[in-house]
Amino acid sequence: MTTWTSEELDKIGAAEELQLASLRKDDTLRPYVTMWVVRTGDDLYVRSAHGPDNPWYRNATAAGAGRVRAGGVERDVTFADAAPDVHAGVDEAYHAKYDRYGPAIVGTVVGAEAIPVTIRLLPR
């Protein structure tokens, strides 16, 4: 499996937003969707702000792969489940990075309801 470089982790982790495109069945990319991204350790995570019915989330989990771009980095990725023990750290990372937007907005990507819609981004 490919891993993120330190430079990629730094650039994507520091980026305000990430663009994510999932693969269609014919291996073409869907349009990019802009979202928040956080780094915890050597991993990158995104969450669906509107739960599992958000179209980008449904497409990403169905496809299992796509492409992301942020901070001047563009990489093909696999969309993976997050390990059960990472969610407190992911919540903390979202709060640290995005709390300035207020609890109504940040609240959509933290807490118990955000756990099942957490995607770990793995380079491929």
Rank of each mutant, 00 (worst) to 15 (best):
V90Y: 07
V86H: 05
P84K: 11
R120M: 02
A49H: 10
V106G: 05
G72M: 07
K11I: 00
A62Q: 13
R39M: 03
T61E: 14
R24F: 07
V68W: 03
T108E: 11
Y98P: 02
T3P: 02
L121D: 00
G41C: 13
I115C: 01
M1H: 13
I119L: 15
G13M: 09
V38T: 02
R67T: 15
W56Q: 12
P123N: 04
V110P: 03
T5W: 00
G71F: 05
A70N: 05
E16T: 13
A83L: 10
F79T: 07
D91E: 12
G107R: 02
P31R: 06
T61L: 14
V38P: 00
G64T: 09
V33D: 07
V117W: 06
A63F: 11
M35D: 00
D10W: 00
A96P: 05
G111S: 09
T61R: 15
D99M: 12
D27S: 13
G66D: 10
W4H: 11
E7P: 03
G102A: 13
E8F: 04
A49I: 09
R58P: 00
D85L: 13
R120I: 03
D81V: 04
R124I: 11
H50D: 03
D10N: 09
G71K: 07
D85K: 10
R58Y: 03
E17W: 07
R120G: 01
A80P: 00
E7N: 10
V110M: 02
E92I: 05
V86C: 11
V110Q: 01
D85A: 14
K97Q: 09
G72F: 11
Y101V: 08
G64K: 07
T108C: 06
P84E: 15
Y57M: 10
V73D: 01
V106W: 04
T28M: 12
A15W: 02
A63G: 11
T5R: 01
D76W: 01
R69Q: 12
G71P: 08
E92P: 01
